[in-house]
Design a protein around this nucleic acid. Structure first.
Lengths: 338, 338
DNA sequence: ATTAGTCGTTTAATCGTTTAAACAAAACGA
DNA sequence: TCGTTTTGTTTAAACGATTAAACGACTAAT
């Protein structure tokens, strides 16, 4: 049961390796006699021959491997995307190698280097903050690349995203419709465009409805200090003067951290405070008041991102495309009018 | 900025490719003049040369790639292990490719085939039910292999596990110490040894304390029908006659499903019912009564599994080893004496 | 009978490395 | 001075596949 090479098959069938390759890849149809073809196929089967993909990759100068870099693999969003992308790619004959940048530009750079040295054919990336320069370098090297989730307006790259601005408007409208007047937001302190868009959607919608958006109702959180920053921000918002009656967490991680605080503080949800989160979390489902959240079309993102990358790899000169998908608001108990 | 090969470096430095290889790999120390070595290193740096790992792999007959097959990547246990294993392997110069078998023997077989065709140097596997035959085949082919989490007593393979029996005893003892007398268990209907061990630990401990373990307090759940089966089992246990006063969920997934039911049924925890789970979940932390759970030493498992595999790959003839780590019980509000 | 096509198959180069063996030049020993 | 080492470098084969080009044996056309 040793490793069999094409040479073994050739020997066993009494032909040259070239012929074996042709037959097994269905090249040169019609030029090869059915008798030898059959003999070769039989020999291959009997030896349980599997072509060595490393050798193939070297010769063909492509590995049929995709490098996927997610923001943070411990987040459901990332792990779901990883699952979907892997499966989608597998269907099309590609293997996906997954790396988690953990929201760190350095780590992201290291992953890109690692994957490049492994000769991936292309990248699918949810970029961390401050990675524009790296991505620009990749683009200049003409490495096939698709961004998702996060993207940079300044970058000429393929991208699959959702309309974060509009989703945020929807969230805010929803809270307003539920009778909330003092809506707070918890957001990251970040340069990432998609997160700024979430903030912008919230602000614009409030303004449109002539509702106040005082600084005290906007909490900025540093990503390296989520727990404390969220707690501090919430305490400000819940202080007696101008108390918030609703809070919009712009990510699931923020929401999870926030809910812990709210539970500790014994805040009634949705009675005292309505809550909405961007993205899902296992936890939301069995919170006593199941959380209202913005659901991203994960399957859509995953399949779109893969087919976009593959089409770019097949025709490297093709135009840059960008696709914007719709997120939907799943309204549940945590934001019911009270 | 095109792809540079060793040939380009050789040309630029005015030497043969062999010399470049020797210098860059620090072979033949002392045989090479410092002057040319420096010239080669300079040329390599200027061209930003990175060796082509595909070509290396082909020549060296090893890819420095490890195939990791987890049971279900959407489970925190798996994704955490994946993160740790990837990082641990990276430190030692290996790349990890991750596959999720989704508890399905067929999928597991397909992943093994896929990874083999990609010439992985070895496997780290959390085997699904009914995969013994496949694993046996791998072993016969002398593919380096380490099992974790799940393992088969009949299989002569390296393994890293925890003592599931003992952990279950601890859980049960803990509940007994909290004054519980009618302790139920929710377990999978499965042939997997480690899960049977959890059940055995529970039963033995009850018996040792001369407590009853009637069939009505043992709920079996089919993995493809978790929600309904858990609900049904719980309803039986909570029916008036011989009502359970504690429940031990043998996995986090079962616990999550169970908690949803318990919340719906308005069961007071730990007042009416104490609850303990095996493994963690994000949700457990902010359940109104944070859940008591069995915490596995993930970092320990991850690093052990990697170093075990690497040492087997380095000396293929080495003895089979198996390591059993300790899990600890994290006691919290959900199982407090009432 | 010569030329030109088909047909089925083989030859050999190639992808980018590694590495044993060969080699030329310099240094050494007698 | 001539053989023997040592030193620094090159040659060339190998890994396992793909594929353009060459090839010999027929067949068909002129």
């Amino acid at each position: 049961m040793e490793k069999k090479s094409i040479k073994d098959v050739a020997e066993k069938a009494g032909v040259s390796t070239a012929l074996v390759s042709y037959v097994l890849n269905n090249r040169m149809q019609g030029r090869i006699s059915e008798a030898t073809a059959a003999r070769i196929r039989k020999a291959a089967k009997e030896l349980n021959y599997q072509p060595n993909r490393i050798a193939q990759s070297l010769k063909l100068q492509k590995t049929r491997t995709i490098g996927l870099i997610v923001a943070d693999i411990t987040n459901t969003f990332s792990s779901q995307i990883a699952r979907i992308v892997s499966e989608e790619a597998r269907k099309k004959g590609y293997l996906v190698i997954i790396g988690s940048a953990d929201e760190d530009a350095q780590k992201c750079a290291a992953l890109i280097e690692l994957f490049l040295s492994r000769q991936v054919d292309g990248f699918i990336i949810a970029a961390a903050d401050n990675t524009e320069a790296q991505l620009k370098k990749l683009l200049k090297q003409k490495v096939p690349l698709v961004l998702f989730d996060r993207y940079f307006p300044s970058l000429k790259a393929n991208a699959v995203t959702i309309d974060n601005y509009r989703a945020s408007c929807t969230v805010t409208e929803h809270l307003i419709a539920a009778g909330k007047k003092r809506i707070g937001i918890i957001a990251y302190e970040t340069g990432l465009f998609h997160l700024q868009e979430r903030l912008r959607g919230y602000k614009d919608t409030l303004q449109q409805h002539r509702l106040a958006a005082p600084a005290s109702l906007t909490g900025f959180v540093n990503i390296d200090n989520i727990e404390q920053d969220v707690a501090r921000a919430l305490d400000v918002m819940l202080s007696s003067r101008g108390r918030a009656d609703a809070i919009y967490f712009t990510s699931n991680k923020l929401a999870v951290a926030g809910l812990k605080v709210l539970v500790e503080r014994n805040i009634a949800i949705p009675g005292t405070l309505a809550v909405v989160s961007f993205d899902e979390s296992d936890s939301f489902d069995f919170f006593h008041a199941p959380l209202t959240y913005v659901k991203q079309p994960l399957a859509g993102i995953g399949s779109e991102v893969v087919s976009m990358l593959i089409s770019q790899m097949d025709m490297p000169a093709s135009k840059i495309t960008s696709k914007v998908l719709d997120a939907i608001l799943v309204a549940r108990a945590s934001s019911q009018p009270s």
